[in-house]
């Protein structure tokens, strides 16, 4: 469905130090630097897959999404989406895809969302019966009954985002790019959005690519993740395998009937946190069974769970590794 080979996107950025002198100098001489937003990444995505793009700010995730959606022209490399070259922006291609950006909106600000839906029906040339059916489904699943006739400007962020998603799906895109779709939403709204997006993928078989800083979005939606760091692909595989690679240790979360001595906990594993009624231990994967057994026999345990390290920590560690690797490479590149 999606094939990316050696994708590069470089920008020329005008650099200028602060101050009047620099401002005046920039009138006659400007210096530009080339920023490598995406620097030679390759991957394939099969039809119906749900893939998460992960990476720190400025990693190149959104740039990649925008290239895939045909908004940006690649500096180098080949990109195909369902047989189309995105940068050509052919009508057939644009009718198959949609990019939802949490920080940009397509809803008409002063008109009710129903008007944007109708506009999209006309622009995407959706047959009336199909439009009616799709709209009924979207309104029901996203609970939009009371929202679609209010002016968009009077909707809350969460309400607006639900309508934004509905507007994006009126033409039933086969490839859905989601760039931070839950940004700024409260927890309950995030859960609603995730459930809806997953249901859409399962029902229609649409391919879904997501970027999000909320790891819960990625964990709930994406069996596969692609990690991009400084424009380069640093991991492509399942989320579980990524966690295993970066943080193979498990966390044993204990609820305790009464406070226990710290020394007792330390004898079982590395203590991540310790409070009067609870404790979290980090242990090697192969020591989990033994640790659990000892904890149950030596501590006043009322509840016990074994978990992976939080995804946020895993990602943070992965990005730190990347940073350290780059610093090392830079040091080696400097002649002695």
């Amino acid at each position: 469905m999606i094939s990316v080979r050696g994708l590069r996107k470089h920008y020329q950025v005008h650099k200028r130090p602060p101050g009047l002198k620099a401002a005046l100098r920039s009138l006659v001489h400007r210096s530009y630097t080339s920023v490598k937003a995406v620097d030679g990444i390759s991957f394939d995505i099969k039809p119906g897959e749900r893939v998460g793009f992960l990476g720190p700010n400025g990693a190149g995730k959104t740039t990649t999404l925008k290239v895939l959606a045909g908004l940006l022209h690649p500096s180098e490399g080949e990109v195909h989406v369902d047989g189309h070259v995105p940068r050509l922006r052919e009508e057939a291609f644009l009718k198959k895809i949609m990019l939802v950006m949490g920080q940009k909106q397509q809803l008409l600000w002063d008109l009710p969302p129903a008007e944007t839906f109708e506009l999209n029906r006309a622009i995407y040339d959706v047959p009336r019966p199909q439009y009616k059916q799709t709209l009924e489904e979207l309104v029901s699943l996203l609970e939009l009954e009371d929202l679609i006739t209010k002016p968009t400007r009077q909707l809350s962020l969460g309400e607006r985002m639900k309508c934004e998603l509905a507007a994006a799906l009126i033409h039933r895109p086969r490839v859905l790019f989601l760039d931070e779709p839950t940004i700024g939403l409260d927890v309950s709204m995030q859960v609603t959005m995730r459930a809806f997006i997953k249901a859409y993928n399962e029902k229609t078989g649409a391919t879904l690519i997501l970027t999000s800083h909320y790891m819960d979005d990625v964990a709930a939606l994406c069996p596969r993740v692609i990690v991009i760091d400084k424009g380069q692909l640093s991991y492509d595989g399942t989320l579980d395998a990524l966690v295993q690679r970066v943080r193979p240790e498990k966390r044993v979360v204990l609820r305790l009937a009464r406070p226990v001595d710290a020394a007792l906990l330390e004898s079982l594993g590395r203590v991540v946190s310790h409070e009067p009624g609870s404790a979290v231990l980090q242990v090697q994967q192969d020591a989990v069974n033994a640790t659990v057994g000892r904890a149950l026999s030596t501590l006043p345990v009322t509840d016990l769970t074994v978990e992976n390290a939080p995804l946020e920590e895993v990602m943070s560690e992965l990005f730190q590794e990347g940073k350290a690797r780059r610093a090392e490479a830079a040091r080696e590149a400097v002649p002695a």
């Binding site: 045909g70 644009l94 622009i123």
Partner: peptide, 10 residues
């Protein structure tokens, strides 16, 4: 950057 929303439409 909001021109992007127009460019996405066919």
């Amino acid at each position: 950057g909001t021109l992007a929303m127009r460019l996405l439409r066919p």
